[in-house]
Write a protein that binds this DNA or RNA. Structure first.
Length: 400
DNA sequence: CGAGATTCATGTGAAGTATACCTTTAGGCTTAA
DNA sequence: AAGCCTAAAGGTATACTTCACATGAATCTCGTA
């Protein structure tokens, strides 16, 4: 009976017309041919980078703007164009893109430089080498030829926040170490005031040119969504008003186009799953929930055990109104005993709580209770259904 | 009553430690001349 | 004697611990009105 039902469902699924024509157009890493409302910035970047096509070192460049304002996309777009031309003319131009935020890949100085070397096809061990040794390897490998290298460091503010600004200083010195090759740097930052907090000398040499990407407004977002959905969805699959709603949602989130596109894509998937002929406005709402839920679950599962244990301890306390670090630590210790883990110190848990806050899993506010000390007051604001979900996942992850 | 001292619970920075991993080097074994 | 393998020595990055000091408002203390 049930088996039959499933077969029927599959059959129906196959006969049903898919709503998508080209789903990958809506995926985050897709680079479209044209980027609406960023013509000005693209032109600027192109002007600044143009000398590289004559193998002259272009100015270092810094790009600012909130997430989803097209920074990465614009840079990638231009990179592709330039690499095409370089290839056609046999120019030794190389553009390397690294996202500094990715944990375990480029979130420390050592790992960043190691990753750069890896881009040239040489393996570097995850630990063990002196950092300057890795720098040397990098210099050697780069300096073998008269080439020009453009280094794109995405979300560099995260890296500097975590490890201090010495890295930037080292990077400004790269060119003086090189004989043949030349390197210029494009830094991308989500944090607008980030550059003001670094050493002024570094600032002047690293940020010779600056460019700000303002957030998109709702109308611009609509254009973007329309352009992409036209190519991605079959005609007439989007109910009127869907695009507007989607743009409105994203505009509320500081004009994040990436979010808008994800929203419409997930909405489409949900509609398809429902067997609906069209993407309805309701699908946008469910898509928003689903994205948030998926993101949180993703974050939870990708954390190390100790983070998960801490998170679970917090969730155990969640029904109480005021949660303080001390309470969490007590629960956490019991939990560790139960699952046979060696508990970390309170010092470390304090840091972990701060990181969970950064990840958006919890809200931790530093408060002073006067005579009764100072602590973080933690609140969890997960939708209750998601919270249950996460609890179950954590239970499983922790082996309970 | 109010200014200043005290206090609590934990935040936070710096330095130290454990672990995992790396390269180098010395010694031992094998092999070929 | 040369070549190859192995294990020890010496070195590093990272995650965590230890130590010590910093915080900041509720509460306490004590001089003063």
């Amino acid at each position: 009976m049930v088996e039959k039902g499933i077969t029927d469902y599959f059959e129906e699924f196959l006969t049903k017309e898919p709503l998508f024509k080209e789903k990958k157009i809506l995926q985050a890493n897709y680079t479209p041919e044209t980027i609406p409302h960023r013509e000005e910035q693209i032109k600027q970047i192109a002007k600044i980078l143009a000398p590289s096509l004559r193998l002259e070192k272009p100015s270092n460049l810094f790009l600012y703007g909130k997430t989803g304002t097209g920074k990465t996309l614009s840079v990638k777009h231009i990179s592709n164009k330039m690499l095409d031309i370089a290839k056609k003319n046999n120019l030794l131009l190389k553009i390397i893109y690294v996202n500094c935020k990715l944990k375990k890949i480029a979130d420390t100085e050592y790992r960043l430089v190691a990753q750069l070397v890896r881009e040239f096809g040489r393996e570097i061990p995850p630990t063990g080498l002196p950092t300057d040794e890795v720098y040397k390897i990098f210099y050697n490998i780069v300096d073998r030829e008269n080439q020009l290298i453009v280094l794109v460091l995405d979300e560099i503010d995260q890296l500097v926040k975590k490890t201090g600004d010495e890295i930037l200083y080292n990077f400004t010195r790269i060119n003086t170490e090189l004989k043949k090759a030349q390197i210029s740097i494009i830094g991308i930052s989500n944090d607008l005031i980030f550059i003001n907090n670094i050493d002024p000398r570094v600032k002047s040499s690293l940020s010779e040119e600056e460019l700000v990407f303002p957030p998109y407004n709702a109308l611009q977002l609509q254009d973007i969504i329309r352009q992409r959905t036209n190519a991605a969805f079959k005609e007439g699959t989007l109910m009127p008003g869907v695009i507007e709603k989607c743009a409105a949602y994203a505009a509320r989130e500081h004009g994040d186009a990436r979010r808008a596109l994800e929203l419409i894509r997930v909405a489409g998937e949900l509609a398809e799953r429902d067997g609906s002929e069209q993407v309805l406005i309701e699908h946008i709402d469910s898509a928003e929930d689903k994205i948030e839920k998926d993101r949180l679950i993703d974050v939870v599962t990708s954390q190390p055990k100790q983070f998960q244990a801490t998170m679970y301890s917090i969730l155990m306390l969640e029904n109480r109104k005021n949660i303080f670090t001390g309470d969490i630590y007590e629960i956490y210790q019991k939990l560790c005993k139960k699952i046979g883990q060696r508990p970390l110190t309170q010092r470390r848990i304090s840091d972990i709580i701060a990181e969970l806050d950064m990840l958006g899993m919890i809200n931790a506010k530093l408060i002073s209770k006067g005579r009764y000390g100072r602590t973080r007051e933690i609140t969890v604001s997960l939708p209750s259904q998601v919270e249950e979900n996460i609890k179950t996942i954590l239970k499983k992850e922790l082996g309970m």
